[in-house]
Amino acid sequence: MKGRLQPLWQGGLALLLLALPFATDAALGHGWVRILDFALLYVLLALGLNIVVGYAGLLDLGYVAFFAVGAYCYGLLASPHFDLHWPLWVLLPMGALLAASFGVLLGTPTLGLRGDYLAIVTLGFGEIIRIFLNNLNTPVNITNGPQGVSLIDPLRIGPWSLGQVHHLAGFDIPVVVNVYFLFLLGVLGAIGLSRRLEHSRIGRAWAAIREDEIAAASMGLYTRNLKLLAFAMGASFGGLSGGLFAGFQGFVSPESFTLQESVMILCMVVLGGMGNIAGVVLGAVLLSVLPEALRAAGGLQQDLLGRVWVDPSNLRMLLFGLALVLMMLLRPEGLLPARARQRELHGQ
């Protein structure tokens, strides 16, 4: 298959990915490994959104809602809040499945209609779910309202808790590194799945729908169900990352699931290159490290101008918005374009 890496490169990449957390930990400390962990989580989210936006060409503006569903599913069923402590291997698939069913619920009324409706309905859903999370603490306390759910059980695989330091052959493996490997596993699985999907019958049907829905329908594709499948599949990636997030963070609250997060994930996909796995990974890594760079920008303003004129979080969103606009105008195929996408956009 074209696009597959040579064995030598594959080996090198594998070594790099294995060594990366240790090297980062030694050179920059736990904090940066944590950033790596989050970068991987965002890669997973961006890959999920890529199925919806990149493969099927549907715009989901409330993707973070599915992330929230997964996170709360894990948080509520593995914490002292209800005094339930379900294991990881039940909760992660359950979160993914739950998110997918929300996707189906949301997609069913809208996916038969024009694409714009899906965009605005998902935009609304992203906000609505936050209203529910914030308010479902009275009269029956389900979500614990704005305070969120805390003391969530750490990720644990069988007897191995990833929430504690392990000693292996004289090495100390800190928590952030444990988690790194779990997340890496998730990301690799997602990449494998995405690749297989892209070139499968379903993937080709999605491409047909994306390029011309009416033509695809007249060729006998049942477009609504195919779109629904893409939407649910993307949502399930979101639910899975939500579960991982909750277990890693040990705490979830409605604040983590704002429109800004959805926009950030969308920005990762658009910036990297819609429909191209390598591009999406690149976009996700770049944009999840960006806030750290911007934090430095805050300090720089303080030093140069005497005060912080543009607050870093504000600047971050401003850049995301600008990136979305500029990418669409100047380089709609993204930094690392998918080959098919480039042909579509530059019409040959």
Partner: peptide, 20 residues
């Protein structure tokens, strides 16, 4: 352009307006 493009610029622009 493909249908997705103006939708994405529009959401980008609304984020820019909000932040400005």
């Amino acid at each position: 352009a493909p249908k997705l493009a103006p939708l994405i610029t529009a959401i980008g622009l609304s984020i820019v307006l909000q932040q400005v």
